[in-house]
Computed example of a mutant assay.
Amino acid sequence: MNTPSAPVDGLTVTTLAERPELVGPLWAMPDNWPVFVPHDPVGALLMHRVRDEFPEYVLVATDAEGAVVARGFSVPFALHAEGRGHLPDRGWDQVLTWAFTDRAAALAPDTVSAIEITIVPGMQGKGLSGRMLAAMRDNARARGFREVVAPVRPSAKHLEPATPMSAYAYRVRESDGLPADPWLRVHARAGAVIDKVAPASMTVSGSLAQWREWTGLAFDTAGPVEVPGALVPVHCEPAGGYAVYVEPNVWVRHAL
Rank of each mutant, 00 (worst) to 15 (best):
R84W: 13
V95G: 02
A104F: 15
H80A: 04
T101P: 11
S129F: 10
G130R: 03
V120L: 15
A99G: 04
D102E: 04
V68E: 00
D93I: 02
V120Q: 12
G125S: 07
A78M: 07
R153K: 14
M132F: 08
P154W: 13
R90E: 14
K126R: 15
R137Q: 14
G130H: 05
M136N: 01
R153P: 10
P154I: 08
T111V: 01
E65A: 13
S74Y: 13
A78R: 05
A104R: 14
V120H: 12
R131G: 03
R143A: 12
I115M: 14
T111Q: 04
R71E: 11
A106T: 13
D63S: 09
G91F: 06
T101Y: 11
R141P: 12
G66I: 00
E147Y: 02
L96N: 06
S129N: 15
S74F: 06
M136R: 03
S155W: 13
G125R: 05
E65D: 12
T118K: 07
E65K: 14
F145V: 01
P121D: 05
S74H: 12
H80V: 00
R131N: 05
S113L: 14
R84P: 00
V148D: 01
E147C: 05
Q124C: 15
G91H: 08
E82G: 14
G72P: 07
L107R: 14
A142F: 14
P109M: 11
N139E: 01
F73L: 15
R90P: 07
N139F: 07
A70V: 11
R153C: 09
R137E: 12
A78W: 07
A108C: 10
T97G: 15
A81H: 01
R71W: 10
V112Y: 01
A142D: 05
H86K: 15
T111R: 01
A135F: 02
M132P: 00
M132Q: 04
M132D: 03
D89R: 10
G83H: 06
G83F: 08
I115V: 13
K126V: 10
P151E: 00
N139G: 06
D93N: 15
G127H: 13
G130P: 11
W98M: 08
A140F: 03
R71N: 14
F145W: 06
F100C: 01
H86P: 06
S113C: 11
D102Y: 07
D93F: 06
G85D: 05
A156F: 10
A64R: 09
A142Y: 13
D89H: 08
V68I: 03
F145A: 01
A150H: 13
V120T: 13
P154K: 00
T101H: 08
A67F: 13
F145S: 00
G125F: 14
A156L: 15
S155A: 11
K157S: 04
P151V: 10
V68Y: 00
A67V: 09
G83D: 08
I119N: 09
R141K: 13
V120C: 10
G91Y: 06
M136W: 10
I119A: 05
